[in-house]
Design a protein around this nucleic acid. Structure first.
Lengths: 140, 140
DNA sequence: CTGGTTGCAAAATTTTTGCACTGGT
DNA sequence: ACCAGTGCAAAAATTTTGCAACCAG
């Protein structure tokens, strides 16, 4: 539960209650927008300001603690930095789910970058569609 | 040059000079942000308003004439809708280049979606890194 | 003609910033 | 105790909206 403290310190960021709260909210939600984070954080820490959420997201993305997941037609979501994966993004409800990014895609994209003498640093693979839950709901 | 007119009409949008101008700017630039489009459009049509650019981007994305390309840490770019491809995004200069999206990735992502009973509608594959030009510039 | 489109200005949203105060290390 | 981090409020930036005039079909 307090593993965040070490993570933050490793990255040269102070382990404040605000940051810990933001991180645990994101972990619980998986992926969240700025205002989803703010809303959620308010429940347990009503004095935390929106400006602080913004400042910390900027800081933590900058230090590689968080990753921005920009989504077509919606607001960016943020997730904890973890091993490479792809996103299933539901165009109905906006939910994002992670799936492993297999070696096939890894190899393939590596070659494409290589052929363009492009120094590959990161991949973002997003699949847009309708999740099982929304498909059921739409059918009814 | 006037092929845009038909394209727009097919989608139920009137072929105004404003839209034609916006489309030709995007074609020329490949990928552009809202304000890049606005700046560029002003050169040949100084009376075109920013609100019109926004309204038309919304309309043309909605009708599938344009596609939004959301980019981590930067503003979204817009491109003409064309066959599936991936993006090489330079983290230094922000330039975006297209590359074909080969069958390997297509098949692989299709299977991943299928296994999650996710109704796949579209893919967005973005590779982040440093382009050849910026790598050279950085070395000097 | 006439309904969609434009331009302008105003409003709403979203994000950033300045600065005094606070709290982590 | 020092300096990064916080909170508030104000500012900046971005995007949306209302409405009268306009123009493509």
């Amino acid at each position: 539960m307090t593993g965040y403290a070490e993570l933050l310190k490793e990255k040269g960021l102070k382990a404040t209650f605000q940051r810990m709260t933001i991180l645990s909210v994101i972990e619980r939600m998986g992926h969240a927008t700025v205002d989803e984070i703010y809303e959620s954080v308010l429940e347990t820490h009503p004095t935390l300001s929106l400006a602080t959420v913004y400042k910390n997201i900027v800081a933590m993305v900058g230090q590689g603690v968080l990753v921005e997941v920009p989504i077509s037609g919606r607001k960016s979501k943020y997730e904890l930095k973890k091993s490479e994966h792809l996103h299933l993004i539901c165009t109905e409800c906006g939910e994002v789910e992670d799936r492993p990014l297999d070696r096939v895609i890894g190899e393939d994209t590596r070659k494409i970058a290589e052929n363009s003498s492009f120094e590959l640093q990161g991949r973002q693979v997003n699949l847009y569609g309708v999740c099982a839950k929304c498909r059921t709901a739409l059918a009814s």
